[in-house]
Nucleic acid binder design. Structure first.
Lengths: 353, 353
DNA sequence: TGTTAGCACTCATACATGTAGAGTGCTAAA
DNA sequence: TTTAGCACTCTACATGTATGAGTGCTAACA
């Protein structure tokens, strides 16, 4: 039993109004605001139907109605129309993100902050999933005896480094030999293929005694592996407190308790983001979000690209009552801006990938 | 007019009880809980005196009394007794912070997280003020044509790096010459002495045409300068929502709005932390904190050391009604743990400073 | 002079009651 | 199928009252 035209019209109007007011919508206020050419009584009947079909909910008998998760879902899937971002807004975002050319981390930080600011909700950016990307360089730079900076360069031009401690007696020359051996042994291998064993095997070519090698291999290994750590940048969490749905302290607490465990959020986004079936963005509404404390929220994520395949996510979290169409256009714009910036960063160095 | 012994005793008891209960303290409950050997009426008289003197406040006529900022101040300055941390707790913190030897950033992150967890309040850690530290090494590592990793090593063993874009046509050899010229020219200069001019002057020794140099000097300069950026790591902000003083949405909002601007917090801590007159910790109570939204909070900070002089701060923010004595012992312990860890990191490389 | 018992007073809270307003559901008629 | 009209329900708000907590004051006592 699909919704007929008028029902759709009414549902859309209710969601639109509710997004704006956060108050249950009454039949009377609907007809006065939108011109349906029918009376409030008729609308009332339709609303009763919509409730029966599960698209609406009623907080109590004599209140107006609010959209259910299913109602929002219908709205998002087929009722709302996403408009292009206005020029001013696009420019504002663009400006914030391109004022200085940055490496990936800085770019993601800026993207997240711009998203939070522009949407008024909270935003997040996830570092790319790099386990499929492969090692192109591994350098070790001796800082002092006993202290080495391990620089890992991956396909797609991502550079990560890590300061590690090694035994004092290793000299710069030995370190160099080791790093060259590992590099030539592992170059072209993807992060997920690299294990402590493969590192050890590769390092053997340095022709140094095992007793020496053992002391540094593990450090090298973790330095490589940590390049794949998911990092998450969140912003605008404070905005959430200003929405009536989180005026209640318990709800606010539930939300912030979960948000404080950013590993959980990162893992979740990573999961839903990776299973990216088709669309350029992905929406999760209310109960669809499998995270405690986020059942009153909606989640919009999209994917940006580093190189051809490697991808990370950006997203916006707001109340279920968020302005979906606007957020979608904003997030899409940020996404293309990230992609453009990354491409620009990469163009310079003729196809490392 | 200093407080006589009994007034002190009563004030202390009130603060202690209020810290625990968050409810205004009544004369009757005081005498039943603490054995003052006087009746509630007498205590009442004393409490009226204390209020007159500004140490207590009364939310309304028929309520008990709560400490004023001045009351907390007296309590903190001369009434409370700080105990040593229990062995278990010390061990717990120690364990969290020493499970793997880390460079500075990681250590601060862990310190902050341990503090938040153990106190139940929110915590922060500030990267050290490095403008007095001096450059000991500057390396540029060519990643790809057009992409260079600038590694800055400072006295006190701090290593910072930054990925920068340079013109494609500069080759590895030229980059090496430039970095060596800058390094030898600026080595031993403190960060605050280094300017774009000194960098330019130093770079001249590379004997490369100005047209080439100009393209990379600014990047090198910002890479050096950003080593001095204050970074702040906050943790446990979500805990604040669980205190009754922040059940009110407006207060919570005020707090979180300020917290979201971490530059503001960092700047403030840096300021009060730098003017460190004498004590090993510094306490700001309520209105003493010159930050909007933090007037219901108290702030305890202390200083950790990197090398002899260079220092950063760690701190705890909680409701005014926080458990001062406990937090002080916890924060002190974290501080010494940081210092120990940093010393351990440094010991290995015989006196770079 | 310090201490205390006793009592009047104040205020917050909880609860019951009444009322107005908003909004629905139902019914009967168009 | 639509609509006007009305009864019904629920919330929000105001009002009044009882209750309890806690103080401030006073007068008596040691």
């Amino acid at each position: 039993m699909p919704l007929d035209f008028r029902k759709k019209q009414i549902l859309q109007a209710i969601v639109d109004d509710y997004i704006e007011s956060a108050e249950p919508i009454a039949s009377k206020s609907l007809v006065s605001k939108h011109d349906f050419h029918v009376s409030s009584a008729t609308v009332r009947n339709e609303m009763a139907d919509l409730e029966l079909m599960g698209y609406l909910e009623q907080p109590h008998t004599s209140a107006g109605r609010i959209p259910s998760d299913k109602g929002y879902r219908e709205y998002v899937d087929s009722l709302m129309h996403v408009e292009e971002l206005s020029n001013e807004e696009a420019q504002e975002i663009s400006q914030r993100m391109t004022d200085s050319v940055e490496e990936l981390t800085g770019l993601l930080r800026k993207a997240s902050s711009a998203l939070a600011e522009q949407t008024g909700y909270m935003s997040l950016a996830l570092s790319p999933r790099l386990h499929k990307s492969y090692l192109t360089q591994l350098k070790m730079m001796m800082i002092e005896p006993g202290k080495v900076l391990v620089v890992v360069v991956l396909s797609a031009g991502v550079v990560k480094d890590r300061l590690v401690r090694i035994p004092d007696f290793l000299n710069a020359d030995q370190v160099f030999q080791i790093s060259r051996a590992i590099e030539s042994g592992l170059c072209g291998k993807s992060l997920e293929e690299i294990t402590l064993v493969t590192v050890t095997t590769a390092a053997r070519d340095a022709h140094l005694p095992d007793s020496l090698l053992n002391q540094i291999l593990y450090e090298a290994y973790t330095a490589i592996k940590q390049a794949d750590n998911l990092e998450i940048y969140m912003d605008g969490t404070n905005h959430m407190l200003s929405f009536p749905e989180f005026h209640d302290n318990n709800r606010a607490r539930g939300l912030f308790d979960t948000l404080s465990k950013d590993g959980i959020i990162a893992g979740y986004v990573n999961e839903v983001g990776e299973s990216s079936t088709t669309p350029s963005y992905m929406i999760r509404i209310g109960q669809e979000i499998q995270l405690v404390g986020l059942h009153d929220c909606s989640f919009i994520t999209t994917t940006y690209n580093v190189g051809d395949k490697i991808a990370g996510n950006i997203g916006v979290i707001g109340p279920k009552r968020m302005d979906y169409s606007k957020v979608i256009s904003q997030i899409s714009f940020v996404r293309t801006t990230i992609n453009d910036q990354l491409k620009k960063l990469k163009e310079a160095n003729g196809g490392t990938e």
